[in-house]
């Protein structure tokens, strides 16, 4: 999760001061990802150092305002254009399973079963979360939860394949 690019996106919208960027970020992600004020200010320092943002001065309440520079807009655009790489072949459970095979661990089926139970519990909780989002009209993050549910469905099928193997 790139705090840097989210701040550039918020400053592309309009000039803001540090606290507004923090609240803007929380609104953007519906407070689902935590971000502390310290992270905002250290990121702003770096962005200013790299000429991606600049300050036209302070507002009426003497808070330092920031605006995005042309270089900042270019950086934001190339980030948006870049596809996201995913770690498709890195799976913590499978790594553990491989280690279990290596040491002739006898309860490998139990490992799979326990993993499956954890994933099913996640399905139950995420579905509840999705329903709460539907009720509260929070459409912004609903697709994230839908995606997580699709991944979990695939993961549970995959565990069944490992169990049969």
């Amino acid at each position: 999760m790139s705090v840097k690019h989210s701040l550039l996106a918020l400053l592309y919208e309009r000039p803001r001061h540090g606290y507004e960027l923090k609240t803007g970020f929380d609104e953007l992600v519906q407070s689902m990802w935590p971000l502390n004020a310290g992270q905002v200010y250290t990121t702003l320092d770096r962005l200013e150092r790299d000429d991606l943002i600049e300050s036209p001065g302070n507002d009426q309440k003497d808070r330092k305002l920031y605006t995005i520079t042309e270089k900042g807009v270019e950086t934001l655009w190339s980030w948006l254009e870049e596809p996201v790489e995913r770690s498709l072949l890195k799976d913590e459970f499978y790594f553990k399973y491989l280690c279990a095979s290596h040491v002739d661990y006898e309860d490998k089926q139990q490992m799979i079963q326990a993993q499956k139970q954890t994933m099913i519990k996640d399905v139950l909780h995420l579905t509840q979360m999705k329903q709460q989002m539907n009720r509260s009209g929070n459409d912004t993050m609903r697709m994230l939860v839908e995606g997580a549910l699709l991944h979990l469905e695939a993961d549970i099928k995959w565990l069944d394949m490992i169990a049969k193997d």
């Binding site: 099913i120 399905v123 139950l124 995420l126 579905t127 329903q131 549910l149 979990l152 469905e153 549970i156």
Partner: peptide, 8 residues
């Protein structure tokens, strides 16, 4: 599983 997730 998607349907089952709606249960308790």
């Amino acid at each position: 599983m998607f349907a089952a997730g709606h249960a308790d």
